[in-house]
């Protein structure tokens, strides 16, 4: 009995303290070091924020470079496919141009009417101040089962602050949750931690909650409200972060929201510098 206990303690101690050969550090010393770093980072000592910011900027750049091969080969195959389909695409585009010419007049009338109505409602037209919009490139888009976020190549140097809304082709994709000098992290709408107030086509208010899956869900809908297919979902702007009326997605048969922008396919996004959430992020 005592022999087996000795064996256990020797093996246990050895596993914790063993050094030599390739092992220059014992597991125990590294556990202590990791704990110190963890608590310094969590409780945010004064000097840790700039250090972490610098570390983030450096690592994100290296990650971008290291991921180049994984981005290069799919892009080449995509370009080749496009090249071979160019004739068919040309005909399709010609047909589309004809269609859009017909629609143009209609759109002009509707946009004028929309601007007038927005003036009446005293809301801000979300494209009004284009000088306050920054275009950013997606540096890292690492898919994680627990966090749905992307890293962009603009940070506090360009005026980006926590809470600013991020869009792609005017469709909302998320908001800034971490800023560094040269980069920022965007929390996507489908992340488990994302909650935003939205308005539905028919005027109903709800909260759009990310679930970690591709399609977020609608919560806190009015009682007896039945979600049907193809209802447009817009940001309500009640939180003061997102522009009212910014389109987000469309409901599907399962009562979830199909986002207008696929969060896994983002290459460039825009950050609206004129809006910042002052609440807790």
């Amino acid at each position: 009995m005592s022999v087996s206990r000795d064996d256990f303690s020797i093996a246990f101690r050895s596993a914790l303290l063993q050094r030599g050969g390739a092992q220059k550090f014992s597991v125990l010393s590294l556990i202590f070091l990791a704990l110190i770093i963890f608590f310094l980072d969590v409780y945010g000592a004064k000097f840790t924020k700039p250090v972490r910011g610098f570390l983030n900027d450096v690592v994100y750049r290296i990650t971008f470079l290291a991921s180049t091969p994984t981005r290069f080969f799919p892009q080449v195959s995509k370009d080749l496919t496009k090249y071979f389909n160019v004739k068919a695409e040309n005909e399709k585009l010609k047909a589309e141009i004809e269609k859009y010419k017909l629609l143009e007049l209609n759109v002009e009338f509707l946009s004028d009417e929309n601007k007038n109505l927005q003036k009446i409602l005293e809301t801000e037209y979300f494209n009004k101040n284009l000088s306050n919009v920054v275009l950013a490139k997606v540096l890292v888009d690492k898919n994680s089962p627990f966090l749905k976020s992307i890293i962009i190549n603009k940070g506090t140097r360009t005026g980006i602050l926590k809470g600013m809304p991020v869009t792609h082709n005017n469709y909302l994709v998320g908001r800034i949750v971490e800023t560094n000098y040269l980069s920022s992290r965007v929390l996507l709408l489908n992340d488990l931690n994302s909650r935003i107030p939205v308005t539905l086509d028919q005027g109903a208010q709800a909260i759009l909650s990310g679930g970690g899956t591709n399609n977020p869900t609608l919560e806190y809908l009015p009682e007896d409200y039945k979600v049907i297919e193809e209802i447009n979902v817009f940001a309500s702007g009640k939180d003061g972060i997102f522009s009212p009326g910014a389109p987000i997605g469309m409901t599907n048969l399962d009562g979830e929201v199909d986002l207008f922008v696929d969060p896994n396919q983002l290459s460039f996004v825009t950050v609206n510098l004129s809006i910042q959430n002052l609440g807790k992020l």
Binding site: S26, L33, I36, I37, V59, K142
Partner: peptide
């Protein structure tokens, strides 16, 4: 073959993983 996986390198890889994934520093290393 523990000699191929030095503890210090694994610790550092954990820190890098935390930065890329957006977790608090040191948690993956632990």
């Amino acid at each position: 073959k523990p000699e191929l996986m030095a503890n210090g390198h694994i610790f550092l890889a954990g820190l890098i993983n935390d930065v890329v994934m957006g977790f608090p520093l040191g948690i993956s290393s632990l």
